[in-house]
Write a protein that binds this DNA or RNA. Sequence first.
DNA 1: ACAATGCTTCGGTTACCATCGAAGTATGAA
DNA 2: TTCATACTTCGATGGTAACCGAAGCATTGT
Lengths: 242, 242
Amino acid sequence: MKEGPDIAQIGALIGDPARANMLTALMGGKALTATELAAAGGITVQTASSHLAKLEAGQLLAQRKQGRHRYFTLADDGVGKLLESIMGFAAGRGHLRHRPGPKEPALRKARICYDHLAGDYGVRMLDSLVAKGAIDVIGDGLALTDKGESELKCIGIDIGDLKSSRRPLCRSCLDWSERRAHLAGSLGKALLSNFFDKGWARRTAESRSVIFSPEAERQFLMLFPVEFAGGLTPREGQPAQL
Amino acid sequence: MKEGPDIAQIGALIGDPARANMLTALMGGKALTATELAAAGGITVQTASSHLAKLEAGQLLAQRKQGRHRYFTLADDGVGKLLESIMGFAAGRGHLRHRPGPKEPALRKARICYDHLAGDYGVRMLDSLVAKGAIDVIGDGLALTDKGESELKCIGIDIGDLKSSRRPLCRSCLDWSERRAHLAGSLGKALLSNFFDKGWARRTAESRSVIFSPEAERQFLMLFPVEFAGGLTPREGQPAQL
DNA sequence: ACAATGCTTCGGTTACCATCGAAGTATGAA
DNA sequence: TTCATACTTCGATGGTAACCGAAGCATTGT
């Protein structure tokens, strides 16, 4: 009975609400201090410190000392990937902590999923890239086409750099709010950075939501049109499902 | 702070050792009774009953009454997929419950991963299919080629039936013992059933390991050769990594 | 009708762990 | 040096949940 990986250990690490909240906060991609994470978890710093030590021992978190601050991040993108998949799973069966809240619409519209764009905008972007033949959907995987590569170069993204990395270029990631796939992988990361660099969007202070400026929003929607146009939100036809 | 899916809930469900053991046992693909699961979890039936109720409420398990037995299975292959990914993650950071045990070699050699073949043989099969051009690796996805489709027809697997399903044909699944990918998805399932149907292999009573008969083993190794031959276990070159 | 099997419910016990106050360490600022 | 900030460690507390014995249903067999 004692064969195989110890899923209970990491399940237990994620299973505590305070720890789960802290991990979720770190899905924003930013490094956060222990004090900030305590606030995110709704607990005191002492308790947070204990939790953080456990998460670090379990190799879910990495820390970096800087002066008298201690910055925590997810240990690597394997952790982000794991949390993504659990979120997708949980959302798929309605395990939502539905405290609707005022910030939620913004979060559903566009948010950071560890290092790439998620939410309605994230899903729309992938749908559009697939529709215009920049990305092929193969099984459950995604592949950048030659056409896509040249198009992205126009936007200012050089694929060459990314290709050399060991990390996959395109990955599909199940979006918990839209229940459809959006684009992850190093390309997903590059696109989001590109939006930040161009000043199209900014991350908010303590939330994972991404705010587009009104003009940038127009440009985004033009750059990533959807075929059965007419508004953004409800779309029929399911490219790149699950 | 209260936005998004409740990952803590499902983390907590998986986080209990007894529950984790029961879920792992169900990764064997067979439906098991409450009594069998109690044994798998190392607890009494009363306790198991309580755990099973929780897992069912959390939609991780489904049950089917049959006479005075109650058969439990994973609720759907989303659950299997989730457990797979957690296992892969846990194994990747050495979170093993290393009680080596006598059955472990068999488990590492060939075992059931929910509904498809895993372990050394599973990895070898995928490697071989990729090497002979039956399956293409695209990003992190897998795609069956035309050549692969016709080859599989010779073995006795009709892809037509599988294609109509909504479930992806090929999926790559990270193998926790080999730390490499093996073939999942409906094709992975079909191949394993095929081995069972042909009498090449059988599942063991209470373990997830798969036993090949000596002659079948020879045929399997011939059917799925590896390029840098010379034995089965240590292979160089990394087709289909991660 | 009666016994046997499979499972659930109830009640009480136990053990663990999340939590916080208070005190201790480290870094930086005045 | 002294104070302030950021964080950790220690110790005590409390609540929760895992656990099992015993009893209660349900189904099957004789």
